[in-house]
Write a protein that binds this DNA or RNA. Sequence first.
DNA 1: CAGTATCCACATTGATACTG
DNA 2: CAGTATCAATGTGGATACTG
Lengths: 115, 115
Amino acid sequence: MHKFNGKEYPCCTSLTMGIIGGKWKTVILYHLLDKKLRYNELRKEMPTVTERTLSLQLKMLEADGIIKREVYTSKPPLKVEYSLTDFGKTLIPLIQSIANWGDFVVEKYSKSKID
Amino acid sequence: MHKFNGKEYPCCTSLTMGIIGGKWKTVILYHLLDKKLRYNELRKEMPTVTERTLSLQLKMLEADGIIKREVYTSKPPLKVEYSLTDFGKTLIPLIQSIANWGDFVVEKYSKSKID
DNA sequence: CAGTATCCACATTGATACTG
DNA sequence: CAGTATCAATGTGGATACTG
């Protein structure tokens, strides 16, 4: 049984999935792999996520120390940028592997199926 | 937008997570990496999962073609073994990377924290 | 042994409107 | 611009008892 940020996981794989699992977290991280992005830039990259959900997911990733939130202005309109922390950067190869396997499946299926 | 087994995913990472995401699927796959296991053997490896949930997760993995279910007896007591399909085996490096990153975090934290 | 059936609790995500 | 508030729907997982 492993512990991280107050949560307990029965397996080393559950720990990883507890941090990057869920419907949106890997998508966010995928877009932050090599660049900082603002909140609305992320929204444009992920047209089907709602504001509320994106906001919640960003907070969870921030709470786990995977991404950092930098604020550049004190009054509206605000400028906020999200990027990987050093700890978050240790996930880069994993996120890429996840993306690659997804691509591999898409490839495989686009070849074997018409639809 | 990618499609797999009737589900749509907005990103290649979501596709992967759609297949191996959730609380238990990676744990199941982790235990099936290098061997076949029976239903009750899996339960012993995962003491905190309920019968119903394990059963549902196994069905989903089977439906996605990741694992196969082999039945060896026709009458109770049944003997059923679960193992990776050839398609499922393409996930082996990914599952190992997920486990490794989890281990890395456990290591990191056991060194920096007392509890 | 290997599950299913039933019922339920909680977590996650969404839609929409609104704010500093 | 970068969110939050509110309400609701859906999904995911759990407890327990039962079955072929």
